[in-house]
């Protein structure tokens, strides 16, 4: 990880603010993504997660600040939804070809890799939620990405489906060596797979390894009540794994300000 951390960042956001019709959804965000790391953006609804992901992917121009992508960066993007118009006939295979892959066998292999073999001739509009997410992921893989941006990729999946999907993403990261930026609200499942978690609520509330963020007062102010059960489960697992790790114990008092600071207007 040390060698990777010193490599030039794939994407670098500096002082990014995003406004829609004069309403600011994101304020002064600075972050960078390094090769090979899995970074998860968490935050409540309307916290600007999707906007930030779109800005990093190049789909949205920030109203202030700048996003710098490494020149020639190959990016695979899985948007939250596709506004599919039923009047547009589109087979899965044709959709995958839009990623620029001319070889049908390669397209089929990508579907197989994401766990959706044989979907090629089906219409996009007929797919189930899980099949659709896997198709979108296959499309992103065909870009041979150095960075995968996944925006709530488990929307519409049940708990086991979501877990399987996250395992797949972690496997793919190991296979391709790509970095992954994930937007999610499935906190306890996601966080354990991430190298770094960034908690967002109109600005960066707190950031760090999953354990650090889960313990942060800003994070708890945002998520403490709604996901109490899930968090307890998560904390429990990590208490076993990391409590004796001196680095983590040491991090906590330094990284975070007084309770409540992060709970400002979102």
């Amino acid at each position: 990880m040390t060698a990777l951390a010193e490599a030039p960042p794939l994407v670098e956001a500096t002082g990014v603010s995003i406004r829609y019709d004069g309403v600011e959804v994101l304020r002064d965000v600075t972050l960078s993504l390094r090769p090979g790391e899995i970074v998860t953006l968490v935050g409540p609804n309307g916290s600007g997660k999707t906007s930030l992901a779109r800005a990093l992917a190049g789909a949205l121009r920030p109203s202030a600040g700048r996003v710098r992508r490494r020149p020639g960066l190959r990016l695979g993007y899985v948007p939250q939804t596709l506004a599919l118009d039923r009047t547009l006939p589109m087979t899965v295979d044709r959709f995958l070809a839009l990623a620029g892959e001319r070889d049908r066998a390669v397209r089929e292999a990508a579907l197989e890799r994401t766990g959706a073999p044989g979907l090629g001739p089906r219409q996009l509009s007929e797919l189930s939620g899980g099949q659709f997410q896997r198709t979108l992921l296959a499309h992103a893989l065909l870009r041979r990405p150095e960075l995968l941006v996944l925006d709530e990729p488990t929307t519409g999946l049940d708990q086991p489906g979501a877990s399987a999907f996250y395992r797949l993403v972690a496997e793919l990261r190991d296979e391709l060596g790509c970095a992954v930026l994930m937007v999610s609200h499935d906190l306890h499942v996601v966080m354990s797979a991430s190298d770094r978690v960034i908690c967002l609520n109109g600005h960066v509330c707190c950031e760090g390894t999953p354990t650090v963020v889960a313990a942060a007062p800003e994070y708890r102010a945002l998520f403490g009540f709604g996901t109490g059960g899930a968090l307890a489960l998560y904390r429990h697992q990590h208490d076993h794994g990391h409590d004796h790790d001196p680095a983590h114990g040491h991090d906590h008092p330094h990284d975070h300000g007084p309770q409540g600071q992060g709970a400002g207007p979102g």
Binding site: A57, G58, A59, L60, L75, P79, L82, G100
Partner: peptide
């Protein structure tokens, strides 16, 4: 054609793919 089709399907996806 390809660019038009990609942007019709999803402007975000098309933009992310350059």
């Amino acid at each position: 054609w390809t660019g038009l089709l990609a942007s019709t399907l999803s402007p975000d996806l098309a933009a992310a793919e350059g």
